[in-house]
Design a protein around this nucleic acid. Structure first.
Lengths: 197, 197
DNA sequence: TGGACACTAGACAGACCTGTCTGTTACTGT
DNA sequence: ACAGTAACAGACAGGTCTGTCTAGTGTCCA
């Protein structure tokens, strides 16, 4: 259960950069960016310490690369999830289905951006990537609300964003697997109420 | 801006125990339980290291005491906030006013329990107190929903809890001061929809 | 007066962390 | 064949952290 270098499983495919990112992704997400040391990452990646520093330059840069990768992967999953639907309302609700799928995974440990922000110092690299990731989703909700013809699209976008975050937090801290579905039901009520106005 | 022992302000009232708790409260909340070291806490408290260890026994125990104190203070604020109202519906909404008041403070840095849980190792003392604090609020919402005669009080309680968490997260990470008011508006919609069913 | 008690100051051990550096091995293109 | 490159292993420096321990100080009460 501890995140020491004695965790012997090794990432064994691709370049040193790819292996480092894969190892960082697993370890940072599971145990936290602060808790996991460089030695643990390179042991998991099966890579020399010098390779990490010649590739990324610092631990902070590795953390940033890890978060950017998570950011892009999540966006892609959301894009694919909403592309299955035509109506803006269905697209908004589909975002919660994407969250539900993530929560269902046994390795789920909450939102990487929220976790990293809480761990890191204020003003660190974590917060910068986190802000981008959060802004992206907020804008998506707002744009979809506008497409749905809702007057105060910004207000609804913010409310859906809060529901989304609340579901993520509850799924992690309360181990509530159905949090995203509960949030989706609430989102439907909010969307319909905003549309009726 | 850094949390080093050079931060010279000193807590100067009460017993060693009280000064340590006051210093821990300020420092742990502002910079995180993991980031702040023992030396910083004792410097702020104006107390010797041996006093900390004879009083609390370990840093973990101090963290736990800090969280329990936050837990009790928050509960008291919520109790007082809802006591101003008679109707269950108004009581539920009043919880968001309590959050709003906390968010308005310049020292606001989000939910101490969420922060500490994200920082600490899974299964640490942080999670235990955090679970108690979260469960308490969830039950409060559910009980009030039941008082309001709502059929699926548990479902509404969970939804309001998620909105609450989402507001807290947004207030911290997006620096959205009005998050609690936006969440309150959404909560009103959800309550009325649940009551109509 | 004197002993118990609570506290202070700070050195110290042992662990862990990031980042640098040396030296070695293996592959690749000319 | 040989230079260049990329990677390896791991020692090391310099710092931080928790927690222990010694020694000295002040205060209260019998």
């Amino acid at each position: 259960m501890s995140a020491t270098a004695s965790d012997k499983r090794v990432v064994d495919r691709g370049s040193a950069r790819e292996r480092l990112l894969a190892a960082a992704d697993e370890l940072f997400y599971e145990h936290g960016v602060h808790t996991v040391g460089i030695d643990t990452v390179i042991a998991r990646a099966g890579v020399a310490k010098a390779s990490l520093y010649s590739t990324f330059g610092s631990k902070d840069a590795l953390i940033e690369a890890y978060l950017v990768q998570r950011f892009e992967e999540r966006n892609e999953r959301v894009r694919q999830g909403i592309a299955k639907h035509d109506e803006p309302r269905a697209k908004m609700l589909a975002v919660f289905d994407v969250a539900d799928a993530a929560i269902s995974k046994p390795t789920y440990r909450g939102c990487a951006f929220i976790n990293a922000s809480a761990e890191g110092l204020p003003g660190g690299v974590e917060e910068a990537v986190s802000a981008r990731a959060r802004g992206w989703l907020r804008e998506l909700f707002t744009d979809l609300a506008r497409d749905a013809g809702i007057k105060d699209a910004k207000a609804l976008g913010d409310q859906l964003g809060m529901l989304y975050d609340g579901a993520i937090i509850s799924a992690r801290l309360d181990r509530k697997k159905k949090a995203a579905q509960a949030a989706k039901a609430a989102a439907a009520v909010l969307i319909d109420a905003a549309a009726a106005r």
